[in-house]
Nucleic acid binder design. Sequence first.
DNA 1: ATGTCCGCTTTCAGCGGA
Length: 257
Amino acid sequence: MRFATWNVNSVKARLPRLLDWLEHTAPDVVCLQETKVAEDGFPADEVAELGYATAAYGQGRWNGVALLSRAGLDDVRRGFPGEPGYPGPEARAISAVCDGIRFMSVYVPNGRTPDDPHYLYKLQWLRVLRDVLAADLAAGPLVVAGDFNVAPTDADVWDPAVFAGSTHVTPPERDAIAALRELGLTDVPARAMKGDHPFTYWDYRAGMFHQNKGMRIDHVYASADLAATVTDAVVDREARKGKGPSDHAPVVVDLKR
DNA sequence: ATGTCCGCTTTCAGCGGA
């Protein structure tokens, strides 16, 4: 089985590239983030032509998550119990069972700056997510993948000095991610296609991608039984190249299954 | 590092968000 996660930064703007990438990568399940489209506007017909069923959760202008699967798509859950809002509900999590594995696509709040209310929202959202995942883990094999907006270590940003005082690297954010690992979710480390750092995000501005000044903020966490069957995991930086890319690259994972 | 992109509205220009 092959699955992937990708923050596409608008599924409408990215549709030609998404379809091309699906054809060439041929994942069985895809977790998408920042689709920026309501459920009824998702290009489900277009991905269906490639054999994928869609479960989408969106609100229009911001956020939005989805699952694509050609391995079954059952028991879809949009959001999660007790999920904090800002102030109302936001489309940041969707999960479903594909071939016996529950996949959850998450788009963790950005946090903006450590003194912004959005930062506290981010931490609270991750706290509640942790409790939900504890229950999901008890129910069976689990993959949680998406844009966590957290760089777990200093090695996960291109220059730690630049990020001093910024979100994505603060101890409370890192602790919130560590709490997911402590549940028994295993970080599936993706290798870099090129260079030493498996960054998954590069700002559009200032030639950051070209200089490989990126961050590793898109992550895949798997229950231990699944993590033991991983045969490869890679950041597909080819998808960040060329005309009209997302600012994130997909992470592609292969399981012996 | 702050050199772009996206979706929306105030729609051929500016804004919030990332």
